[in-house]
Structures are given as C-alpha cells and as structure tokens.
Simulated scan of single mutants.
Amino acid sequence: MTYDKPIKRIAVVGTGVIGASWAAQYLARGFDVVATDPAPGAEKRLRDYINRAWPDLKTIGLAAGASQDRLSFTADMSAALVDADFVQENGPERPEFKQKLFAEMDVAAPIDTIIASSSSGLTMSSVQVDCVHPERTVIGHPFNPPHIIPLVEVVAGAKTAPDAIARAMRFYAEIGKKPILLKKELPGHVANRLQIALYKEITYLIQDGVLSVADADDAVSYGPGLRWGVMGPNLQWHLGGGEGGIQHFMEHLMPRMVESMKHLGSPDFGPTLAQTIVDGVLAEAAGKSVDELAAEENRTLIGLLALRNVSKARAASAVAAE
C-alpha cells in the first residue's frame, strides 16, 4: 500500500483543546475539515475556539482558500471518516479507549488514509493492536497549541509501514510544521520527557531553598530558554566550544558536565513542595487568568516565530549573494 494520494479533506476526531487547535490549524492551511465528537455542546465549543484562534492565524499567515466556512461537524464518527484523506485523532489518553477507537476508525476510514494520533503518552504499538490495517496508523503528537507551535513528534508502531511514516513526515512539513522522527517508541515520546527532566531539577532546587519559583522561571526563560528558541542544546555546545567547536567541547568541557550530572537532585515531591510551587506561580501570575496568560504567550510566540523566519530568510539571502 502507498500513501501518496493528495490530502484535501482532514477528519479531526475529538475536539477538546488539542483537537480544536488542530482543526484551526488545518482550516488555516486551506483544507476542508470535518470534526467529530460525541460530547454535548462540542460543536459550539469547537467553533468558539476557532473564532478566538483565527486572529492569531491571520497574523501567522493564512494559506490560499483558508476559511472557517470549510469546517463541518458531525457526531457520527463513521460519517466523518468515510471521505477523509488524513485523520488526526485526539481522544482521551486511556489505552483501552484508544484501542477501541482506533479499531473503529480503521473500519471507517479509506484503506489508503493515514490515521494519526495526538497521544502524548501512549505508544502506537499499544494502540494499533485491534486494527485490521495497523500499517497506516502513526503517532503525530503536537506541542500545545498545535496551531502555533510547529513541533510534531512522529512515531511508528510495531506494525506501522515505513511508507506511512514517510508520508506523515512530508505532510506535516508541507503544512508548516516541524516534524521530528523518533526512531524508537518511548512512553511520553521525547519533548515531554525533556521538559520533565528539566522540571525535576527545578523542583529540587526550589525544595532545597536555592531559589524561588519566579526566579526558577526567569533562570530558564531569560537564560538558556532564549537560546533554545534559536538552536538546540547540541548546537549550543558547538558554539560553547569556541573555535574548536563541538570537538573541543567534548574533549575538554564535557567531562566537567558529566561530573556535574552526578550532583543533580531528586526532589521529595509532597504536599509542602506542591503548595510552595502553587503559591509561587499564583504570585507570579499577578492576578492574570490562565486564558489571559495563554493569550499573552501566544502573541509573544507568534512574534518570536516571525522574527526567526525573517532572520533565516536574511541569512539565506546573504549566502545566495556570496
């Protein structure tokens, strides 16, 4: 089986926060989107979310033909999938539920349609077990919110066909995402594991009285976090090696870092530490609601992504002119 048919119609299964954001993203890229969710009031919540997201999507830039009018909704999942060219699933993170859902989607969707899961923690091998055609099922895990953050983690299951993975990687790249391919399945995939690893040390430092909650946030967002938004830690160590680059870093600086790893802490996470973080975060939020903070974050992220694109374009022009 090949998965090279044109993708024009997207089915979004499950329209919670992640599903609604995906629907907004696909509409902004000029696709027909049919969404499905059995929950009462799901359609109104979905349309309200997309209305709120649309100004940000306009700022990012809409594709030709992008329109909210290209969204349709049905509570009948089989009807939503019957003509879908690509499926983005966003159901609850429960193994038994996902297995049943994927078996049902596998029956309903055309045989040459890829079915991608936004699952943040489950592996595709555990989800595809009851599918008749598991070869077209993949993990396509976004970073929240998908209509703004480019990252998508693409992971195969034990029975996923290489062609399906290759097509999913191409598709996400074609719509402006930054897909990364995980060569092995891991619970939680990669990006969340990196976040958890960093947060483990942050909570240890807070518990040990080294710094406050607000200072811990500033230490990341005004320090390495700024650099990580430009290039990842491996390239950063290349810069850190000076003229000798990464080779010098590995030979002369990495041994010190390995020694430092031995001193990283493990917090004793209990009610006291949890309350310390709650109190610190609420003080840092300074009365702003979660929705207000999220909107502020989205505006800043859009600006940063735009600046990054301008910088890349200028660098490419400079290289071409040489």
Rank of each mutant, 00 (worst) to 15 (best):
R136S: 03
S120A: 09
S260I: 13
A116E: 09
V132P: 00
G229N: 05
Q99D: 00
I18M: 14
K5G: 06
M124N: 02
D217V: 14
I111E: 13
L301Q: 14
H238F: 11
Q195I: 07
L235C: 01
P179A: 04
G91A: 15
F249I: 10
R45M: 12
A318T: 13
A173S: 14
L282W: 06
M254N: 15
G242F: 12
D163T: 04
L62M: 11
L226R: 01
G303P: 12
R193W: 01
V220C: 01
V87K: 13
T160C: 11
R29K: 11
N309D: 15
M169T: 04
P146D: 09
T15C: 14
G16E: 10
K183W: 02
P95N: 14
S126Y: 03
S289F: 10
A216V: 13
H147N: 12
C131K: 01
L81A: 07
D218R: 11
T123K: 14
Q275P: 00
A166E: 11
A11W: 11
S212G: 08
L235N: 08
V278Q: 03
D37V: 07
H252Q: 13
D217H: 09
L239E: 08
V258I: 15
P271G: 08
G244R: 09
T137P: 00
S289D: 01
A161M: 10
M77F: 00
K58M: 14
G241S: 13
K177V: 07
I115Q: 09
Q275C: 03
A315Y: 08
V258N: 07
I18T: 11
V34P: 01
E135T: 04
I302V: 15
R9K: 15
E185D: 08
S67Q: 09
D163R: 08
V258C: 01
H189L: 08
V220E: 00
G244S: 10
E297R: 15
H252K: 14
H147E: 02
E185K: 09
V82P: 00
R167K: 15
S120D: 03
L307C: 00
V13E: 05
K8G: 04
A108H: 01
R70P: 00
F171H: 14
A320Q: 13
W22V: 04
Y49N: 11
W228V: 02
D130M: 10
K159G: 00
L198T: 09
E201S: 04
A156W: 08
I165A: 07
H147L: 12
H252T: 14
V138C: 10
D268M: 10
G91L: 06
M231I: 15
L81C: 03
L305H: 12
K159Y: 05
D106R: 07
L305Y: 15
H147P: 05
